[in-house]
Design a protein around this nucleic acid. Sequence first.
DNA 1: GCTTGACCTGGAGCGCGCTCCAGGTGGGAG
DNA 2: CTCCCACCTGGAGCGCGCTCCAGGTCAAGC
Lengths: 133, 133
Amino acid sequence: MDSYSPAEVTARTGFTIDTLRYYERIGLLRDVHRTTGGRRRFTEDDLRFLHLLRCLRDTEMPIAEMLRYVELLREGDDTQAERLAVLQDHETRVAEQIDRLRGHQEHIRTKIALYGAALEQPVPEPAEDLARV
Amino acid sequence: MDSYSPAEVTARTGFTIDTLRYYERIGLLRDVHRTTGGRRRFTEDDLRFLHLLRCLRDTEMPIAEMLRYVELLREGDDTQAERLAVLQDHETRVAEQIDRLRGHQEHIRTKIALYGAALEQPVPEPAEDLARV
DNA sequence: GCTTGACCTGGAGCGCGCTCCAGGTGGGAG
DNA sequence: CTCCCACCTGGAGCGCGCTCCAGGTCAAGC
């Protein structure tokens, strides 16, 4: 079968089993198959969807927005434009986030360079200045 | 005077006054000056330090690690190497973070492109597939 | 001198996103 | 058949980083 136990899914997606159950509880995962005994079986599609969730979570999309996305999915094909908009808005935020991070990275590197200089010739650079950049 | 009221600092750093008080409470800000009446007055150095804090927070440094950094600062000049190490470790994480974000951004863009294609010629691309990337 | 609004303190509360727990069940290995 | 471990449910708890509140004080402007 191309179906996966919770343990296999945790291995492949990095979500803990508790997180998978949580996502199902709040409606982020829907219609997860069960064995007759009630154990979850995840499909290939579930896995793909979980990879998308991981991508969105790792880029700081709030769960509420992911919920909105799955709600749109559930409503069918005529919500495609809205889903696209959700993703585009998010992509914009991710791009901004990357830019901001790069700026901050620059700042940190500057500070690192100052420390490097101070450690090489310790006397002339008053250490107090290091708190000032 | 080159000293600033809480309101001026919130305007210049983006921290709320509650956050400033919180940072002082937990020891992240130390020795903030007061007027005789007990109101805070922030110095130029405080501002510079707050900008560093903002940079570290925005790049996801946990507060516990920023506390370690200020503790090292407090301990004096012979902790410079350790402070440098803290910053270098962090810079590495920031770089990784940027790389990961770029990967995820690529994924999102791919998905956006799929939606774009589906919306332009709606028939041949089954909408269900959109959940699969 | 009075008003008014920014500011003070200590402490409680909150929102997010999980994470853990108790107590019980399913099902493959030996 | 038995064992044992992965899995189940509902619900409580947690860690982080603030954020808000009550009840009071300071000080600039009129």
